[in-house]
Design a protein around this nucleic acid. Structure first.
Lengths: 231, 231
DNA sequence: ATCGAATGTTGATTAATATCAATATTAATT
DNA sequence: AATTAATATTGATATTAATCAACATTCGAT
């Protein structure tokens, strides 16, 4: 973990959290003076499940995975974390502990801002508090959809959904280099890595996608969407 | 659905939402003047998935189930709703639609309070907004634990967890009348009703619980907890 | 009291998915 | 470049849980 200043200020930050727009000049200055930058290499851990939650973390660059550490190696990736997003585990404002771990997938630049500051801003700025409510609600909706997906879709549907997520939300392209290993893709869709391989192969043989190691190309978007919805 | 006033005022309400304690006298009066009571019979629907979310709902008496309506009859109960709790679907503050349905399990008395009022209070009272943040976070934590349970536990573990929830949180007794049908218990633990029957029978034959239709008695709490944790 | 619908139960069968084992491939490190 | 370690792939097998079918029971509504 390195600590060097890359972002000159919150105002100029290209990956600033949307909710910071609700802050006054003084308030944004407060944030700016109390933030700490850190850089993580792939695989390094930003947040450890169970540890006390002292700071809100934002990615300014890179990608990370939020995952639940289960018994032995049954890790379960619950979210891919992208820039401009507040990283705040479920329940943090209640019990001030992290319910999941977060690890860097790529090289990641981060800003740490103490929850003391965040809490102070919530109490003194209702519009900021409202923005926090919206953010938490959006996160709840994502978690809810994840739950629906896991309980109602079979393996092919979950893989299709994951591929569409990367294509639509992350890389915004039908061709992309999925950063996750097959094991991680399994952790993300809650299945064994062998099953991931088999289903990708199946989708490939049906000309719905083309796979070449980590490179994935979506050939038949319609069909993939259908599988995601109905699989 | 009946509409008669049972609760004289929010101040006297025995099932008032904790966060209302953060309101001033004027503010609580505003809530009180803008609330509508309604009574639902078992099976009646309080909230329909997909409908616009106009009001926050609180139970003053009774129990309800929040569930996702899937394809055909694959309903998935995501939460048992108890008094004193704000019913606000995940994502409501964002897209103002309900992501789940809520139906009464018993006769249920409710208060409806328009989100216009709630939103106004969030904007003018930072402490109330903070309470809302805590509430949403607590809900997120519950959803998170549900996800962990579904992804990491096998059927016996999930049933054990559900029984402990009813014993510990709802009825606060080792003997209770589980209000859910076997089908609903399956919807709650994400398994077929036949599997529910089989696992309850198995637990019964091992003298861990005693089942007599809807009546359930926990005989060996230690073992049940072990199954819930490690199953 | 009677009928029909929902609920509960049981066993047999099938489908979905994980696990195991073996091997190939790629990446990382000396 | 050689050696290890991680990752990917494939087939065979085992496990888990759903589905199907048959029937018993309970519950509501005539």
């Amino acid at each position: 973990m390195l600590s060097q200043r890359i972002i000159s200020s919150c105002e100029n930050c290209p990956a600033s959290w949307e909710n910071f727009k609700n802050l006054s000049e003084d308030e944004i200055k407060l944030v700016d003076e109390n933030r700490y930058e850190a850089t993580f290499k792939p695989g390094e851990i930003l947040i450890k499940q169970g540890s006390p939650a002292a700071s809100a973390i934002f990615l300014s660059q890179g990608m990370a995975k939020a995952y639940i550490e289960g018994h032995e190696r049954s890790n379960n990736i619950i979210e891919i974390v992208l820039p401009s997003n507040l990283i705040i585990g479920p329940g943090v404002p209640v019990d001030e502990r992290y319910a999941y771990s977060v690890a860097a997938l790529t090289t990641v630049h981060t800003c740490f801002i103490s929850f003391k500051i965040i809490n102070q801003l919530i109490r003194q700025n209702a519009e900021f508090a409202n923005g926090m409510i919206k953010d938490l609600s959006a996160k709840a909706l994502v978690a809810h959809k994840k739950l629906v997906s896991l309980t109602q879709k079979k393996m092919a549907g979950r893989i299709a959904e994951a591929l569409l997520f990367f294509s639509d939300e992350v890389f915004k392209s039908p061709v992309f280099d999925i950063i996750l290993t097959r094991q991680e893709l399994g952790d993300y869709t809650n299945m064994a890595k062998e099953s991931v391989v088999r289903i990708l192969k199946e989708l490939d043989s049906q000309d719905i996608i083309k796979t070449d190691c980590s490179k994935i190309e979506i050939l038949n978007l319609e069909k993939l969407r259908w599988i995601s919805e109905n699989g």
